[in-house]
Design a protein around this nucleic acid. Structure first.
Lengths: 193, 193
DNA sequence: CGTCTATTTGAATGTACTCAAAAGCGGTGG
DNA sequence: CCACCGCTTTTGAGTACATTCAAATAGACG
C-alpha cells in the first residue's frame, strides 16, 4: 500500500487537501519491520498508535501468569496498539509484533493531538474508524458467547481468509480463546466431516 | 440528568455554543419509558441510536434458538442501540428495553447525519465516545478469555456496583455468557469464601 | 544435520451446561 | 390481609465440551 493509497482511503470518509495529505505523514514515524520484530513492547511508555502500511501484525497481552492473549490481527490500513494506554498516556498493556515483514506508521499522543488540531477533518475519519471497530468488537463478543469453539474457528476462517497460512496456530487458538491442543483436535474433526 | 447536564458532559470533549446546545436536541425525540418498556425492538427498521437521560436500560440480541444475549447495560449519559444496523440503515439486530422507568433521546440515521453536518464539533465528541467504548469492549473481550465465571462475575460487580439489585440475575448471567443456574451456584460459593 | 519450537495425540480432569424439580418472591385479586 | 399465580432463583444429578499434563511427531531454521 502506498502513501497515496492511504490518503485515498482516508478521503472515503473525510475531505483532505493535497497539502493536508503531505502534512499528515509528518505526524508519524515510518518503520520497516522484519518478521517477528516488535513495534511496541508491553510496558513501553508511552503507548503508541500504529497504522499498518503493509504486512501482517498481531497485538497481544501477556498476563501475570505468562499467558498470551491475542487481541487482534491486523493487515494493511488497520490501526492497532493499546488505545487505552495511548489515550491516557500510560504504558502499553499490549505488545505489537510483525508476523511478516511489514511497514508501519507510528505516533504518540502529543503528535496525534497536534495532528487533530492541525487537521480537524480527521476527527470525522477517526469517528468512523472507531465506530466500525466498535461494531466488529460487539460482534466478536456476541459470537464468543453464542458459538462453540468449532463455530468460532469457522467464523475466524471466514473473516481472515488465508491468515492461517501465515500465523502459527497457537496464536489463532489464543485469539479464539481456546487451547492450541483443542484447536488441533477441532481441525482434525473438521477434516473428517 | 437534565438537558444542561448533558450539554456539560458533551462540552468536556468539544466546544458547543448556547445556540448549538438548543439546536442539538431538535435532532432527537424525547421518550419517557415505563419499566420493561421497549424503545426499539429487534427487527425495527431503521435501527435507532439512543441516548439515556435517566434510568437503566439493557440492549440484547435474541438468536434463532430464542436464546437471549445481553450486549450491554446502560445508565445516564450512555449511548446505546444497534450501531451496525444504525450506520447501515438496516433493521436493528438488538432490542433496547428499560429495566427501570427511564428517559431517553432517540434519533435515526438521517437526523444524525444532519446533526453532524450542522454541528461538526460533534465529530470530535463521538470520536472520543467511540474510542472509549472501544477500549471497554477490548477489555471485555480479554476478560472473557482470561477469566473464570467467578472472576467475570466479580469484575461485573466492580464495574456496575448496585446493578445487581436492579437487574434480574438471569440477565446478568447472559451478560457474562453463563447460564443462570451456574451464576446461582457461583454466588453461593462466593458467600462461603 | 541438529536443535528448537510448533503440532498432534491420548488419558485423566474440571468447569460449566442441561434437564428437572423444588423453593422463593412479588404482584394481584378476592 | 391472605391466597394464589407466574416468574425467578436454587439445588442436584448426569453429561459434555474444553483443559491440563505428558509424550511423541513434525517442521522450521541456522
Amino acid at each position: 500500500m502506498t502513501e497515496s493509497q492511504i490518503i485515498q482511503n482516508i478521503r472515503k470518509h473525510t475531505p483532505l487537501t493535497e497539502a493536508d495529505a503531505t502534512t499528515l505523514f509528518s505526524f508519524f514515524t515510518h518503520r520497516k519491520l522484519r518478521k517477528n520484530e516488535v513495534v511496541m513492547a508491553q510496558g513501553a511508555n508511552p503507548a503508541l498508535f500504529v497504522l499498518i502500511k503493509s504486512g501482517c501484525l498481531m497485538t497481544y497481552h501477556t498476563d501475570t501468569q505468562h499467558q498470551v492473549h491475542i487481541i487482534q490481527f491486523g493487515t494493511a490500513m488497520w490501526w492497532t496498539g493499546d488505545l487505552s494506554g495511548f489515550t491516557q498516556s500510560q504504558p502499553s498493556q499490549y505488545t505489537v509484533k510483525a508476523m511478516t515483514p511489514a511497514d508501519v506508521y507510528v505516533t504518540d499522543l502529543p503528535r496525534f493531538e497536534k495532528m487533530m488540531r492541525t487537521l480537524p477533518a480527521l476527527e470525522r475519519y477517526f469517528r468512523v474508524i472507531f465506530q466500525n471497530a466498535l461494531v466488529s468488537h460487539q460482534k466478536r463478543i456476541v459470537i464468543n458467547f453464542a458459538a462453540s469453539a468449532q463455530e468460532k474457528y469457522r467464523a475466524f476462517q471466514k473473516q481472515f481468509p488465508g491468515l492461517e497460512l501465515i500465523v502459527p496456530q497457537k496464536y489463532i487458538a489464543s485469539y479464539l480463546g481456546i487451547t492450541p491442543e483443542f484447536l488441533s483436535t477441532i481441525r482434525h474433526r473438521k477434516a473428517k466431516s
